[in-house]
Simulated scan of single mutants.
Amino acid sequence: MSGFDFAILTEIVSFLDNSRPDVCVEATTALVASLQVDDGLQVRSNCAHYLENEVPKKLCSLISNPCVSEIEGKKINPSWPMKVLLGSLDALGSMVGEGGEMVAEAACECGVVGRVGEVIMEYSHTSKRGVEAADKILDSCCRLLANLCRSECGCTAILDKEGVLAKLINEFESPAADCWDRFQHVATVLMNVTQVERGRKVLLKISDGFLDKVTPSLTANNSVRRAGIAGAIRNVCFEKDSSWWLIHEKKIVDVICYPLCGPEGFDMDDKIGMTPNMWMEGPDKKREPDADTRKLLVEAILLLCATGRKNREKLRELKVYPIVKTLDLSEESEEVSNKISECVQFLMRDEEGCERIEGEMLAIEPEQTSVDVMEPAGRVKPMKPEDWDAVD
Protein backbone atom coordinates (compact mmCIF):
# COMPACT_ATOMS: atom_id res chain seq x y z
CA MET A 1 0.00 0.00 0.00
CA SER A 2 1.73 3.16 -1.21
CA GLY A 3 -0.66 5.66 0.32
CA PHE A 4 -3.73 5.78 2.53
CA ASP A 5 -7.22 7.19 2.32
CA PHE A 6 -8.15 8.97 5.56
CA ALA A 7 -11.82 8.18 4.95
CA ILE A 8 -10.96 4.49 5.10
CA LEU A 9 -8.89 5.15 8.22
CA THR A 10 -11.83 6.84 9.92
CA GLU A 11 -14.04 3.89 9.00
CA ILE A 12 -11.54 1.43 10.43
CA VAL A 13 -11.23 3.38 13.67
CA SER A 14 -15.01 3.45 14.10
CA PHE A 15 -15.10 -0.37 14.10
CA LEU A 16 -12.87 -0.56 17.19
CA ASP A 17 -15.89 0.32 19.33
CA ASN A 18 -18.00 -2.46 17.82
CA SER A 19 -19.20 -5.07 20.31
CA ARG A 20 -18.84 -7.90 17.81
CA PRO A 21 -15.43 -9.56 18.21
CA ASP A 22 -15.10 -10.49 14.55
CA VAL A 23 -15.43 -6.84 13.56
CA CYS A 24 -12.82 -5.79 16.14
CA VAL A 25 -10.40 -8.41 14.81
CA GLU A 26 -10.84 -7.18 11.24
CA ALA A 27 -10.43 -3.56 12.36
CA THR A 28 -7.16 -4.23 14.18
CA THR A 29 -5.87 -6.21 11.19
CA ALA A 30 -6.71 -3.29 8.91
CA LEU A 31 -4.89 -0.88 11.26
CA VAL A 32 -1.73 -2.93 10.80
CA ALA A 33 -2.18 -2.83 7.03
CA SER A 34 -2.64 0.95 7.07
CA LEU A 35 0.89 1.35 8.40
CA GLN A 36 2.47 -0.61 5.56
CA VAL A 37 3.14 2.43 3.39
CA ASP A 38 6.25 3.40 1.46
CA ASP A 39 6.40 7.04 2.52
CA GLY A 40 7.72 7.52 6.06
CA LEU A 41 6.13 10.96 6.26
CA GLN A 42 2.79 9.42 5.33
CA VAL A 43 3.17 6.87 8.11
CA ARG A 44 3.69 9.57 10.70
CA SER A 45 0.81 11.58 9.30
CA ASN A 46 -1.40 8.54 9.68
CA CYS A 47 -0.20 8.05 13.25
CA ALA A 48 -1.00 11.69 14.03
CA HIS A 49 -4.53 11.04 12.85
CA TYR A 50 -4.68 7.92 15.01
CA LEU A 51 -3.78 10.01 18.03
CA GLU A 52 -6.57 12.47 17.31
CA ASN A 53 -8.93 9.53 17.40
CA GLU A 54 -7.38 8.26 20.66
CA VAL A 55 -6.68 4.92 19.03
CA PRO A 56 -3.86 3.96 21.45
CA LYS A 57 -6.33 4.43 24.30
CA LYS A 58 -8.93 2.29 22.54
CA LEU A 59 -6.42 -0.45 21.83
CA CYS A 60 -5.17 -0.43 25.43
CA SER A 61 -8.78 -0.77 26.54
CA LEU A 62 -9.24 -3.76 24.23
CA ILE A 63 -6.07 -5.32 25.65
CA SER A 64 -7.54 -5.13 29.15
CA ASN A 65 -11.08 -6.10 28.12
CA PRO A 66 -10.86 -7.81 24.76
CA CYS A 67 -14.44 -9.00 24.40
CA VAL A 68 -17.94 -8.96 25.83
CA SER A 69 -19.16 -12.28 27.20
CA GLU A 70 -22.33 -12.43 25.12
CA ILE A 71 -24.27 -10.62 22.40
CA GLU A 72 -28.06 -10.56 22.39
CA GLY A 73 -28.11 -13.35 24.92
CA LYS A 74 -25.77 -15.55 22.90
CA LYS A 75 -22.53 -16.67 24.56
CA ILE A 76 -19.30 -15.73 22.81
CA ASN A 77 -16.93 -18.57 21.99
CA PRO A 78 -13.90 -18.35 24.35
CA SER A 79 -11.53 -18.22 21.37
CA TRP A 80 -12.77 -14.79 20.28
CA PRO A 81 -11.44 -12.79 23.24
CA MET A 82 -8.00 -14.22 22.47
CA LYS A 83 -8.35 -13.21 18.81
CA VAL A 84 -9.36 -9.66 19.75
CA LEU A 85 -6.49 -9.44 22.24
CA LEU A 86 -3.97 -10.67 19.68
CA GLY A 87 -5.24 -8.22 17.07
CA SER A 88 -5.08 -5.31 19.53
CA LEU A 89 -1.52 -6.16 20.54
CA ASP A 90 -0.39 -6.42 16.93
CA ALA A 91 -2.12 -3.18 15.91
CA LEU A 92 -0.62 -1.20 18.78
CA GLY A 93 2.78 -2.81 18.19
CA SER A 94 2.67 -1.72 14.55
CA MET A 95 1.66 1.81 15.51
CA VAL A 96 4.47 2.12 18.02
CA GLY A 97 6.99 0.61 15.62
CA GLU A 98 6.13 2.95 12.76
CA GLY A 99 4.99 6.05 14.62
CA GLY A 100 8.06 6.66 16.73
CA GLU A 101 8.22 8.75 19.89
CA MET A 102 4.83 10.38 19.35
CA VAL A 103 2.83 7.16 19.41
CA ALA A 104 5.06 5.65 22.11
CA GLU A 105 4.28 8.56 24.41
CA ALA A 106 0.56 8.17 23.76
CA ALA A 107 0.73 4.44 24.49
CA CYS A 108 2.74 4.99 27.67
CA GLU A 109 0.22 7.56 28.89
CA CYS A 110 -2.46 4.89 28.45
CA GLY A 111 -0.52 2.53 30.71
CA VAL A 112 0.33 0.05 27.98
CA VAL A 113 3.23 -1.58 29.88
CA GLY A 114 1.08 -2.36 32.90
CA ARG A 115 -1.70 -3.74 30.70
CA VAL A 116 0.69 -5.87 28.68
CA GLY A 117 2.30 -7.03 31.91
CA GLU A 118 -1.08 -8.31 33.12
CA VAL A 119 -1.50 -10.26 29.87
CA ILE A 120 1.96 -11.79 30.24
CA MET A 121 1.22 -12.83 33.81
CA GLU A 122 -2.01 -14.51 32.70
CA TYR A 123 -0.88 -16.28 29.56
CA SER A 124 2.53 -17.44 30.77
CA HIS A 125 0.80 -19.64 33.34
CA THR A 126 1.89 -23.27 33.03
CA SER A 127 -1.65 -24.45 32.26
CA LYS A 128 -1.51 -22.46 29.01
CA ARG A 129 1.85 -23.79 27.78
CA GLY A 130 1.72 -25.19 24.29
CA VAL A 131 -1.55 -23.46 23.44
CA GLU A 132 -0.92 -21.91 20.04
CA ALA A 133 -3.07 -18.81 20.62
CA ALA A 134 -1.38 -18.18 23.98
CA ASP A 135 2.05 -18.51 22.35
CA LYS A 136 1.12 -15.95 19.71
CA ILE A 137 -0.25 -13.55 22.32
CA LEU A 138 2.91 -13.70 24.41
CA ASP A 139 5.08 -13.26 21.33
CA SER A 140 3.01 -10.20 20.33
CA CYS A 141 3.38 -8.80 23.86
CA CYS A 142 7.16 -9.03 23.60
CA ARG A 143 7.15 -7.56 20.09
CA LEU A 144 5.05 -4.62 21.27
CA LEU A 145 7.38 -3.95 24.20
CA ALA A 146 10.44 -4.28 21.94
CA ASN A 147 9.09 -1.61 19.59
CA LEU A 148 7.92 0.55 22.49
CA CYS A 149 11.38 0.74 24.08
CA ARG A 150 12.99 1.99 20.91
CA SER A 151 11.94 5.38 22.35
CA GLU A 152 13.23 6.93 25.56
CA CYS A 153 9.76 7.20 27.09
CA GLY A 154 9.16 3.52 26.31
CA CYS A 155 12.43 2.54 28.00
CA THR A 156 11.41 4.54 31.05
CA ALA A 157 7.94 2.99 31.17
CA ILE A 158 9.34 -0.55 31.03
CA LEU A 159 12.12 0.12 33.54
CA ASP A 160 9.55 1.65 35.91
CA LYS A 161 7.69 -1.68 35.89
CA GLU A 162 10.36 -3.75 37.60
CA GLY A 163 8.00 -6.67 38.08
CA VAL A 164 7.22 -6.88 34.38
CA LEU A 165 10.89 -6.79 33.39
CA ALA A 166 11.82 -9.39 36.00
CA LYS A 167 9.01 -11.65 34.78
CA LEU A 168 10.18 -11.30 31.19
CA ILE A 169 13.77 -12.18 32.08
CA ASN A 170 12.76 -15.15 34.21
CA GLU A 171 10.58 -16.55 31.42
CA PHE A 172 13.32 -15.82 28.89
CA GLU A 173 15.85 -17.68 31.01
CA SER A 174 13.79 -20.90 31.04
CA PRO A 175 11.93 -21.26 27.74
CA ALA A 176 9.37 -24.05 27.60
CA ALA A 177 10.67 -27.00 25.62
CA ASP A 178 7.20 -28.06 24.50
CA CYS A 179 6.18 -24.90 22.64
CA TRP A 180 7.31 -22.16 20.32
CA ASP A 181 9.89 -19.70 21.71
CA ARG A 182 7.31 -17.08 22.60
CA PHE A 183 9.74 -15.02 24.72
CA GLN A 184 12.46 -14.72 22.06
CA HIS A 185 11.92 -10.97 21.69
CA VAL A 186 12.74 -10.37 25.35
CA ALA A 187 16.28 -10.29 23.95
CA THR A 188 15.23 -7.39 21.71
CA VAL A 189 13.64 -5.63 24.69
CA LEU A 190 16.91 -5.93 26.63
CA MET A 191 18.91 -4.68 23.66
CA ASN A 192 16.66 -1.63 23.44
CA VAL A 193 16.39 -0.73 27.14
CA THR A 194 20.18 -0.85 27.44
CA GLN A 195 20.35 2.08 25.03
CA VAL A 196 19.95 4.22 28.15
CA GLU A 197 22.21 4.28 31.19
CA ARG A 198 19.42 3.28 33.55
CA GLY A 199 18.72 0.15 31.51
CA ARG A 200 22.38 -0.81 31.55
CA LYS A 201 22.50 -0.36 35.33
CA VAL A 202 19.46 -2.64 35.73
CA LEU A 203 21.03 -5.43 33.66
CA LEU A 204 24.31 -5.07 35.56
CA LYS A 205 22.74 -5.01 39.04
CA ILE A 206 24.50 -7.75 40.97
CA SER A 207 21.68 -8.60 43.38
CA ASP A 208 19.20 -9.35 40.59
CA GLY A 209 21.61 -11.51 38.61
CA PHE A 210 19.94 -10.61 35.32
CA LEU A 211 23.18 -10.71 33.35
CA ASP A 212 23.85 -14.32 34.36
CA LYS A 213 20.31 -15.27 33.35
CA VAL A 214 20.47 -13.89 29.82
CA THR A 215 24.05 -14.46 28.61
CA PRO A 216 23.57 -18.24 27.98
CA SER A 217 21.19 -17.28 25.15
CA LEU A 218 24.21 -16.03 23.22
CA THR A 219 24.72 -19.65 22.16
CA ALA A 220 21.03 -20.53 21.69
CA ASN A 221 19.69 -22.03 18.48
CA ASN A 222 17.31 -19.08 18.14
CA SER A 223 18.95 -16.30 16.09
CA VAL A 224 16.66 -13.61 17.59
CA ARG A 225 17.88 -14.51 21.07
CA ARG A 226 21.53 -14.45 20.02
CA ALA A 227 21.30 -11.11 18.22
CA GLY A 228 19.36 -9.38 21.00
CA ILE A 229 21.65 -10.57 23.78
CA ALA A 230 24.74 -9.69 21.71
CA GLY A 231 23.32 -6.17 21.41
CA ALA A 232 22.57 -5.98 25.13
CA ILE A 233 26.09 -7.16 26.05
CA ARG A 234 27.58 -4.66 23.64
CA ASN A 235 25.52 -1.87 25.20
CA VAL A 236 26.49 -2.67 28.80
CA CYS A 237 30.14 -2.49 27.74
CA PHE A 238 29.59 1.28 27.50
CA GLU A 239 29.61 1.34 31.31
CA LYS A 240 33.30 2.05 31.84
CA ASP A 241 32.94 1.96 35.64
CA SER A 242 31.73 -1.65 35.38
CA SER A 243 34.38 -2.80 32.91
CA TRP A 244 36.79 -4.27 35.48
CA TRP A 245 33.94 -6.23 37.09
CA LEU A 246 32.70 -7.43 33.71
CA ILE A 247 36.14 -8.59 32.61
CA HIS A 248 37.54 -10.04 35.83
CA GLU A 249 34.47 -11.16 37.79
CA LYS A 250 31.84 -11.98 35.15
CA LYS A 251 34.35 -13.32 32.62
CA ILE A 252 32.45 -11.44 29.92
CA VAL A 253 35.36 -11.75 27.48
CA ASP A 254 34.88 -15.53 27.36
CA VAL A 255 31.14 -15.05 26.82
CA ILE A 256 31.79 -12.66 23.93
CA CYS A 257 34.65 -14.56 22.28
CA TYR A 258 33.21 -18.08 22.32
CA PRO A 259 30.70 -17.43 19.47
CA LEU A 260 33.48 -15.78 17.44
CA CYS A 261 35.66 -18.90 17.48
CA GLY A 262 35.37 -21.39 14.64
CA PRO A 263 36.82 -24.75 13.62
CA GLU A 264 40.25 -23.44 12.53
CA GLY A 265 41.97 -23.97 15.86
CA PHE A 266 44.94 -22.09 17.35
CA ASP A 267 48.70 -22.50 17.64
CA MET A 268 50.03 -23.92 20.89
CA ASP A 269 51.48 -20.55 21.86
CA ASP A 270 48.12 -18.87 21.30
CA LYS A 271 46.38 -21.40 23.55
CA ILE A 272 48.49 -20.38 26.55
CA GLY A 273 46.22 -18.16 28.64
CA MET A 274 43.22 -18.73 26.39
CA THR A 275 40.12 -20.29 27.96
CA PRO A 276 40.04 -23.93 26.76
CA ASN A 277 36.41 -23.65 25.62
CA MET A 278 37.63 -21.58 22.69
CA TRP A 279 39.51 -24.49 21.08
CA MET A 280 38.54 -27.77 22.77
CA GLU A 281 35.74 -28.59 20.30
CA GLY A 282 38.24 -28.66 17.46
CA PRO A 283 36.83 -28.96 13.93
CA ASP A 284 33.30 -29.37 15.34
CA LYS A 285 33.29 -25.80 16.68
CA LYS A 286 30.76 -23.60 14.89
CA ARG A 287 31.12 -19.85 14.63
CA GLU A 288 28.18 -17.44 14.98
CA PRO A 289 26.62 -17.52 11.48
CA ASP A 290 24.99 -14.07 11.50
CA ALA A 291 27.26 -11.20 10.44
CA ASP A 292 25.27 -8.55 12.34
CA THR A 293 25.57 -10.56 15.55
CA ARG A 294 29.30 -11.02 15.01
CA LYS A 295 29.64 -7.28 14.48
CA LEU A 296 27.88 -6.58 17.79
CA LEU A 297 30.22 -8.94 19.60
CA VAL A 298 33.37 -7.46 18.01
CA GLU A 299 32.13 -3.99 18.94
CA ALA A 300 31.73 -5.20 22.53
CA ILE A 301 35.41 -6.18 22.51
CA LEU A 302 36.29 -2.82 21.01
CA LEU A 303 34.43 -1.01 23.77
CA LEU A 304 36.26 -3.04 26.43
CA CYS A 305 39.57 -2.23 24.72
CA ALA A 306 38.77 1.46 25.15
CA THR A 307 38.27 1.21 28.93
CA GLY A 308 41.93 1.43 29.89
CA ARG A 309 45.38 -0.06 29.73
CA LYS A 310 44.86 -2.56 32.57
CA ASN A 311 41.82 -4.01 30.86
CA ARG A 312 43.64 -4.23 27.55
CA GLU A 313 46.43 -6.13 29.26
CA LYS A 314 43.85 -8.62 30.55
CA LEU A 315 42.39 -9.00 27.06
CA ARG A 316 45.87 -9.74 25.75
CA GLU A 317 46.36 -12.37 28.49
CA LEU A 318 43.11 -14.02 27.39
CA LYS A 319 44.45 -14.10 23.84
CA VAL A 320 41.72 -11.97 22.35
CA TYR A 321 44.10 -10.90 19.59
CA PRO A 322 44.56 -14.38 18.04
CA ILE A 323 40.81 -14.94 18.36
CA VAL A 324 39.86 -11.84 16.35
CA LYS A 325 42.79 -12.38 13.95
CA THR A 326 41.58 -15.90 13.17
CA LEU A 327 38.03 -14.61 12.82
CA ASP A 328 39.20 -12.02 10.29
CA LEU A 329 40.80 -14.68 8.09
CA SER A 330 37.37 -16.17 7.35
CA GLU A 331 35.26 -13.01 7.71
CA GLU A 332 33.19 -12.13 4.65
CA SER A 333 31.60 -8.97 6.05
CA GLU A 334 33.58 -5.81 5.42
CA GLU A 335 31.88 -4.07 8.35
CA VAL A 336 32.97 -6.80 10.76
CA SER A 337 36.51 -6.75 9.35
CA ASN A 338 36.72 -3.00 9.86
CA LYS A 339 35.75 -3.40 13.51
CA ILE A 340 38.30 -6.18 13.91
CA SER A 341 40.97 -3.83 12.54
CA GLU A 342 40.06 -1.26 15.20
CA CYS A 343 40.35 -3.94 17.89
CA VAL A 344 43.78 -4.93 16.55
CA GLN A 345 44.94 -1.31 16.71
CA PHE A 346 44.06 -1.25 20.40
CA LEU A 347 45.47 -4.67 21.24
CA MET A 348 48.75 -4.24 19.35
CA ARG A 349 49.43 -0.62 20.28
CA ASP A 350 52.56 0.50 22.09
CA GLU A 351 51.29 1.41 25.56
CA GLU A 352 54.51 2.98 26.77
CA GLY A 353 54.32 6.76 26.80
CA CYS A 354 50.99 6.75 25.01
CA GLU A 355 48.93 9.78 25.95
CA ARG A 356 45.97 9.25 23.64
CA ILE A 357 42.59 9.67 25.22
CA GLU A 358 40.92 6.30 25.74
CA GLY A 359 38.07 5.74 23.36
CA GLU A 360 38.98 8.45 20.88
CA MET A 361 39.05 5.87 18.09
CA LEU A 362 35.46 4.79 18.74
CA ALA A 363 32.47 5.96 16.79
CA ILE A 364 29.93 3.67 18.43
CA GLU A 365 26.57 4.46 19.98
CA PRO A 366 24.25 2.21 22.02
CA GLU A 367 22.46 -0.18 19.70
CA GLN A 368 18.73 -0.72 19.24
CA THR A 369 16.54 -2.63 16.87
CA SER A 370 12.88 -3.08 15.99
CA VAL A 371 10.67 -6.02 15.16
CA ASP A 372 7.98 -6.40 12.54
CA VAL A 373 4.56 -7.27 13.87
CA MET A 374 2.41 -8.52 11.00
CA GLU A 375 2.29 -8.68 7.25
CA PRO A 376 0.00 -6.25 5.38
CA ALA A 377 -3.64 -7.29 5.32
CA GLY A 378 -6.86 -6.12 3.72
CA ARG A 379 -9.33 -3.48 4.87
CA VAL A 380 -12.22 -4.21 7.21
CA LYS A 381 -14.78 -6.67 5.88
CA PRO A 382 -17.36 -7.33 8.64
CA MET A 383 -19.00 -10.71 8.54
CA LYS A 384 -22.58 -11.02 7.43
CA PRO A 385 -25.24 -11.68 10.11
CA GLU A 386 -25.90 -15.18 8.74
CA ASP A 387 -22.19 -15.98 9.11
CA TRP A 388 -22.14 -14.75 12.70
CA ASP A 389 -24.17 -17.71 13.93
CA ALA A 390 -21.53 -20.08 12.63
CA VAL A 391 -18.61 -18.32 14.31
CA ASP A 392 -16.60 -20.68 16.52
Score class of each variant (00 low, 15 high):
residue 36 Q to T: 12
residue 319 K to P: 05
residue 321 Y to Q: 13
residue 270 D to C: 13
residue 227 A to I: 09
residue 75 K to V: 05
residue 43 V to H: 03
residue 299 E to M: 15
residue 235 N to H: 09
residue 98 E to C: 06
residue 47 C to N: 07
residue 185 H to N: 02
residue 272 I to R: 02
residue 205 K to L: 08
residue 175 P to L: 08
residue 329 L to R: 11
residue 78 P to M: 11
residue 169 I to N: 09
residue 229 I to Y: 03
residue 282 G to P: 04
residue 361 M to N: 06
residue 37 V to G: 07
residue 231 G to F: 02
residue 278 M to Q: 06
residue 12 I to G: 09
residue 174 S to K: 13
residue 58 K to I: 09
residue 47 C to L: 08
residue 109 E to M: 00
residue 301 I to D: 06
residue 43 V to Y: 01
residue 147 N to M: 01
residue 139 D to S: 12
residue 339 K to L: 09
residue 140 S to D: 04
residue 190 L to I: 01
residue 273 G to S: 07
residue 246 L to H: 04
residue 326 T to D: 07
residue 380 V to H: 12
residue 230 A to V: 06
residue 315 L to S: 07
residue 354 C to Q: 11
residue 365 E to T: 05
residue 61 S to V: 08
residue 382 P to M: 07
residue 31 L to Y: 05
residue 3 G to T: 14
residue 388 W to N: 10
residue 311 N to F: 02
residue 283 P to W: 10
residue 224 V to N: 09
residue 70 E to H: 15
residue 108 C to M: 00
residue 250 K to V: 04
residue 341 S to C: 06
residue 122 E to T: 13
residue 336 V to C: 10
residue 106 A to K: 00
residue 128 K to Y: 15
residue 154 G to D: 00
residue 223 S to K: 06
residue 8 I to V: 14
residue 135 D to L: 12
residue 201 K to C: 07
residue 175 P to Q: 01
residue 107 A to W: 03
residue 129 R to F: 13
residue 173 E to M: 14
residue 252 I to F: 10
residue 223 S to F: 02
residue 142 C to G: 07
residue 59 L to V: 08
residue 362 L to C: 07
residue 279 W to Y: 15
residue 386 E to A: 13
residue 2 S to H: 09
residue 122 E to G: 01
residue 237 C to T: 09
residue 145 L to S: 04
residue 117 G to D: 11
residue 349 R to N: 11
residue 192 N to E: 03
residue 325 K to C: 09
residue 379 R to W: 11
residue 120 I to W: 05
residue 64 S to Q: 14
residue 172 F to A: 09
residue 309 R to Q: 15
residue 167 K to S: 11
residue 8 I to L: 15
residue 57 K to T: 10
residue 173 E to Y: 08
residue 325 K to G: 04
residue 138 L to Q: 06
residue 187 A to I: 06
residue 352 E to P: 02
residue 383 M to V: 10
residue 266 F to G: 09
residue 313 E to I: 11
residue 11 E to I: 02
residue 3 G to W: 15
residue 14 S to D: 12
residue 84 V to I: 12
residue 180 W to M: 14
residue 107 A to D: 01
residue 239 E to A: 11
residue 204 L to Q: 04
residue 162 E to H: 13
residue 5 D to E: 10
residue 290 D to K: 11
residue 343 C to P: 04
residue 3 G to A: 14
residue 44 R to A: 02
residue 214 V to P: 03
residue 81 P to K: 06
residue 212 D to L: 15
residue 48 A to G: 08
residue 118 E to R: 14
residue 204 L to T: 05
residue 297 L to G: 07
residue 167 K to I: 05
residue 31 L to C: 00
residue 302 L to D: 04
residue 217 S to R: 13
residue 131 V to G: 00
residue 385 P to M: 05
residue 337 S to K: 03
